[in-house]
């Protein structure tokens, strides 16, 4: 299903779609519980879990100590012994505090044990710049996770997708990171009231076009769409693809699009060097070289920490204008 397919009977903002996703995941499985920093009575610093503590009580919605390693360890141990943990790492930047539990334990336990362990773990975390929170509260570190066999990574950029991603992750027997975008918290969208899932590893064609494929994820999907409007005005028909799942990545949908448009631009908010865009660009080059009219281009953040000062932050994060400018360059229209 895509956003366009969803019934339009109700709108929710992104944050409330998160709440509803977690609520329904807890409702449908008595073995599911949620744990994280300030997520209990306070309902999270982002307000995204408000009301869940009152509804499910302290045995199922737990405030943890500020202990990210402990939180992921809790999820690994509880997941391997029969529960369905949903844990929150408040800011994605904090995964540095728990990388061992993520990379060496959560991701590998099943494989190392010869398939004898199952890790039905959901990790929710908030990524991205735009709120002037500076270098340690604004990063997009999804490439770190995608590089780790054993994890699945979804990066929902609409209210519909974030609810669906959470329920999909909660029902999935593998560890799934739902990387949410703090810059989209107030974004409204159509969200069905009943629980629903997203197809794992399936990209969304957000907009169809003929002359250029833009592959963008997270908050950048909205900038890419705006860029497509700008380019449309110049007579360029743009196809916009949101991979949605970065691990596993829907290479097929991307390649099919590039084979049609003959031009590809990959956009993300994370730094350009070694970002997931490098992998996407490499796959396009490997699999549809003969179709390309120009080298695959990328628009992403420069190789720098996220700066604090609003003027610097705005300059750091890619936007529609920069995307459109780069698109014109590769199309020979600049």
């Amino acid at each position: 299903m895509t956003t366009a397919d969803a019934p339009a009977e109700r709108q929710l903002v992104y944050t409330l779609a998160i709440t509803e996703g977690v609520r329904q995941a807890l409702q449908e499985d008595p073995l599911a519980f949620m744990a994280g920093e300030d997520i209990g009575e306070a309902g999270s610093v982002f307000g995204i879990y408000r009301g869940l503590y009152d509804e499910f009580g302290p045995d199922r919605v737990l405030d943890t100590p500020i202990s990210e390693s402990g939180i992921i360890g809790l999820a690994v141990g509880a997941g391997a012994t029969g529960l369905k943990p949903i844990v929150d790492i408040m800011f994605m930047d904090f995964i540095g505090e728990c990388m061992d539990e993520i990379v060496n334990q959560l991701a590998k336990m099943r494989y190392m044990f010869g398939g004898k362990a199952t890790l039905p773990v959901t990790v929710l975390t908030m990524s991205g710049a735009g709120l002037n929170l500076a270098a340690q509260h604004s990063q997009s570190l999804e490439a770190w996770l995608c590089h780790t066999p054993g994890l699945k990574v979804v990066m929902p950029a609409t209210a519909y997708d974030v609810k669906g991603a959470i329920i999909t992750a909660a029902r999935e027997p593998n560890p799934v990171f739902v990387v949410m975008c703090k810059g989209l918290m107030a974004l409204p969208g159509d969200v069905p009231e009943e629980p629903y899932t997203l197809p794992i590893g399936k990209a969304k064609v957000v907009r169809e076009g003929e002359g250029l494929t833009i592959v963008a994820h997270g908050r950048m999907i909205h900038e890419a769409t705006k860029a497509a409007d700008l380019l449309e005005a110049d007579g360029v028909s743009v196809e916009v693809i949101d991979p949605l799942w970065l691990q596993p990545l829907d290479t097929e949908t991307i390649i099919n699009s590039v084979s049609k448009t003959h031009n590809a631009l990959v956009v993300h908010e994370a730094v350009r060097f070694g970002g997931i865009g490098a992998e996407i660009a490499a796959q396009i080059a490997e699999l549809s070289f003969d179709y390309l009219d120009a080298p695959v281009a990328r628009v992403a953040a420069p190789f720098s920490p996220v700066p604090f000062s609003p003027v610097l932050e705005q300059s750091y994060v890619p936007n529609a204008e920069r995307i459109a400018t780069e698109a014109k360059r590769i199309l020979g229209l600049g």
Binding site: S69, G70, I72, G73, L74, A75, V76, G77, A78, G79, A80, T81, L83, P85, E101, Q105
Partner: peptide, 8 residues
């Protein structure tokens, strides 16, 4: 930390 999860 994993044992704490099992104990949970």
């Amino acid at each position: 930390p994993i044992a704490v999860g099992a104990a949970f």
